[in-house]
Computed example of a mutant assay.
Amino acid sequence: MASIEDFRMKSHELLIELDAATMEMMTLVTSKCVSGPDWDFASKRQHDAYKSWDAFMNTPNTNI
């Protein structure tokens, strides 16, 4: 069983990556660079970061 501290730390780690990935995309938007390989990479990074965080947050709790 993971402790609440383990949960908090993992959630924080995933949110840091999600925030960084989103910020990278927004930086590209302000640079008017919303297509091409840089955009594709940033978009995939943000998508993957969100999926990881969402999967973590929606993992069934078997201890209830």
Results as ranks from 00 to 15, higher is better:
T59G: 05
G36K: 06
V29I: 11
M23G: 05
S11F: 09
K10F: 10
I4Q: 13
C33D: 13
H47I: 03
T62C: 15
Q46W: 02
D48F: 02
T59K: 12
T62E: 15
L18Q: 00
K44D: 07
T30K: 14
T59R: 13
S35G: 07
C33S: 15
G36F: 04
K51S: 07
A21T: 01
T30C: 14
G36R: 06
S11Q: 14
D19A: 12
A42P: 00
E24Q: 09
S31P: 01
F7Y: 14
N61A: 12
K44G: 10
P60K: 09
K51P: 00
E24S: 06
K51N: 05
V29C: 06
L18H: 01
K44Q: 13
D19F: 10
L14F: 03
E17L: 06
S31W: 11
N61I: 12
K44A: 13
S31E: 14
K44M: 08
E24V: 03
I64M: 12
W53P: 02
A20R: 06
A55K: 15
V29L: 03
E17K: 04
Y50Q: 05
K51L: 08
N58V: 05
I16D: 08
L28Q: 01
T22F: 04
T27F: 10
M9N: 15
G36T: 03
M26R: 04
T27W: 06
Y50F: 11
D54P: 00
E24T: 04
F41Q: 10
T62K: 15
D54T: 05
D38G: 07
Q46S: 12
A20F: 04
V34T: 13
R8N: 07
I64K: 15
L18K: 02
A42H: 00
D19K: 15
K51I: 07
D54I: 08
H12I: 09
L15Q: 09
D38T: 12
A2Y: 11
Y50V: 03
A55F: 09
I64W: 12
M26G: 05
A2F: 13
Q46E: 08
T59W: 09
S43E: 02
G36V: 08
H47M: 07
A42Y: 00
M26T: 03
A55D: 12
D48G: 01
S35V: 06
A42D: 00
L14R: 01
M26C: 10
M1A: 12
K10W: 13
V34P: 03
H47F: 08
T59Q: 14
I16V: 10
N58D: 09
T27C: 12
T30F: 15
Q46G: 02
N63I: 15
W53F: 08
S52P: 00
A42W: 00
V34G: 08
R8A: 06
L28S: 02
P60L: 07
E5N: 08
T62Y: 15
A49Q: 01
N61M: 14
P37K: 06
M57T: 11
N58L: 07
K32D: 09
N63Y: 14
S35M: 10
W53S: 02
K51H: 08
D48N: 03
W53R: 04
S31Q: 11
A49I: 02
H12S: 10
S11D: 12
Y50N: 02
P60D: 13
N63V: 14
L14P: 01
S31F: 10
N58Q: 08
K32G: 05
N63T: 10
V29T: 04
R45A: 05
P60N: 11
T30R: 15
